[in-house]
Design a protein around this nucleic acid. Structure first.
Length: 476
RNA sequence: CGGGGUGUAGCGCAGUUGGUAGCGCGCUUGGUUCGGGACCAAGAGGCCGUGGGUUCAAAUCCCGUCACUCCGACCA
């Protein structure tokens, strides 16, 4: 890896954002390209971020009453054909196994692009009575969608995700569940990833294939484009009817359940990079950073330095901080740049001069501010600083985002807005023609509908009475 | 699927009108360094994507083929 070259390449972050992004994910050793086109290898440093995300989310799911389970990778093709809209939506990107055991298979097997069909099939066997409801399960797994163009984390042929699938006795309860999980996601994005999000219902055009309603979480990236960072779907009885998910109710009548599904993926890591990064590379929020504190010994050959560094590391680790020492034989300057690029929230420098004075130099990655810190109280100070960084990162990205939200009342206004790298709020009549027109003229899509009461307005495209306020943006 | 580009050392690249391969970074060894990407010296590393053709001779010319990549289209 040539770091000097890297810093030069990302210097112009505004104009070369796509290139910057690709360089960051490859050069920080988060991922590598896989041998199969469109796949990525997640390397240990990137995977450690994923593990931290998983752990945090999993706790939240369990608090929300969800239990983890695992369903098979391969799904008989016939399962997909049971829900018409679903099969139509996913057919173009499903990868299919046709041969196994040295022979052609009787029935081709789909590699799951999502698991509604197989989980629905199992749920229909498991659910008999209203007493069995609600069913709330989640699985962590990989899925495959054969995309034409791919980018690490943002869109790859295979990716890791979590998918929750629930069944409820009533429409109201299922709708509530959809919104409840949307809120769980929102809190996670803001509290843990420090990424502010807009939540709201997706338009018909943008909704999940087979859903009654899709709700999305949209985050603004540094270049003003939007990233759909999670979704929660209300599926009504569409899948219950297709997969025969029925229960016997208190009134002795057979009834179909109401289902929901919700998911987030490794795409969140892409969002993390593009929401917080800077010219020097990654900036990771402390809660998901694989290494929270990197200790750099200075002039280690002079004796006593490494010993002090180890003592310091042990102190921090005992205080529950993910701290490591970089004892490799290269110059301090090289290490500074290396770990800044990798987004480590706090750097501690310790050298002979500091040891004499009983201090260490501490630098925070988000602001690049350097200061001296006493070795006596270092665990507490570092812990407090990690909390501060976590909080400041959310505030900083929220402030940056809020400055880039504009209102528009014309198609031209929408175009100007997205060209200025903004999210554009505009009235919309609700028709597909107007939505398509925005895509054609401004290369922007309706991200989410935010129904603000008391703001009657006209559709920015056709001028008719608006049904919704919509956020239009260019998207990943 | 349409249009462009590129395949030469781990990475980034150079290689003239054909004459059997070079640079930077990285890597190894020894030494001097170490508070913002250190320096000196000596090394290791290549079937020039692949198949064929032309030629005394091909990284270089011709034909095929494969892979990657960018822009469209498709896609969450």
């Amino acid at each position: 890896m040539d770091n000097k070259q890297f810093v030069k390449e990302i210097a112009d972050i505004e104009n070369e954002f796509a290139q910057w992004y690709t360089d960051v994910v490859l050069k920080t050793e988060l991922v590598d390209y896989g041998p199969v086109k469109g796949t990525m290898v997640i390397r240990p440093y990137g995977y450690a971020i994923w593990e931290n995300i998983q752990k945090d989310m999993d706790d939240r799911f369990k608090k929300a009453g969800s239990k983890n389970a695992y369903f098979p990778l391969l799904i008989p093709m016939s399962f997909f054909t049971k829900e018409a809209e679903h099969v139509e939506g996913f057919a173009p990107e499903v990868a299919v196994v046709t041969h196994a055991g040295g022979a052609k298979l009787e029935e081709p097997l789909a590699i799951r692009p999502t698991s509604e069909t197989i989980i629905g099939t199992m749920y229909s066997k498991w659910i008999q009575s209203y007493r069995d409801l609600p069913v709330i399960m989640n699985q962590w797994c990989n899925v495959m969608r054969w995309e034409k163009t791919t980018r690490p984390f943002l869109r790859t042929s295979e990716f890791l995700w979590q998918e929750g699938h629930t069944v409820h006795a009533s429409e109201e309860e299922a709708q509530e569940e959809t919104l409840r999980m949307l809120e769980v996601y929102r809190q996670f994005m803001e509290e843990t990833l420090a990424i502010p999000v807009f939540t709201g219902r997706k338009t018909e055009k943008e909704k999940f294939a087979g859903a009654v309603a899709t709700y999305g979480l949209e985050a603004m990236m540094l270049d003003g484009k939007s990233l759909q960072i999670g979704t929660s779907h209300y599926l009504g009885q569409n899948f219950a009817k297709a997969f025969d998910i029925k229960y016997l109710d208190k009134d002795s009548a057979q009834k179909y359940g109401y289902t929901t599904s919700w998911g987030t993926s490794t795409r969140m890591i892409g969002g993390l990079i593009m929401a917080h990064g800077d010219q020097r590379g990654l900036v990771l929020p402390p809660k998901v950073a694989p290494i929270q504190v990197i200790i750099i010994p200075i002039a280690a050959h002079k004796g006593g330095v490494n010993e002090k560094a180890i003592e310091l590391r042990d102190k921090l680790v005992n205080a529950g901080i993910r701290a490591e020492i970089d004892m490799r034989e290269s110059s301090p300057g090289w290490k500074f740049n290396e770990w800044e690029m990798k987004g480590v929230p706090i750097r501690v420098e310790i050298g002979p001069r500091d040891i004499e004075n009983g201090v260490a130099v501490i630098m925070r990655r988000d602001t690049l501010e350097k200061s001296n810190i006493s070795l006596d109280t270092i665990e507490n100070d570092v812990n407090n600083l990690l909390t501060t960084i976590q909080k400041d990162m959310l505030e900083k990205s929220r402030a940056r985002r809020d400055k880039k939200i504009v209102e528009a009342d014309s198609l031209d206004g929408i175009l100007k807005g997205v060209e200025g790298k903004n999210f554009v709020k505009a009235g919309w009549c609700g028709c597909r023609e107007c939505e398509d027109k925005v895509k054609e003229v401004a290369q922007a899509t309706a991200r989410v509908m935010c129904d603000e009461e008391g703001v009657p307005c006209k559709c920015a495209i056709c001028g008719k009475e608006a049904k919704h306020k919509v956020i239009f943006a260019r998207a990943y």
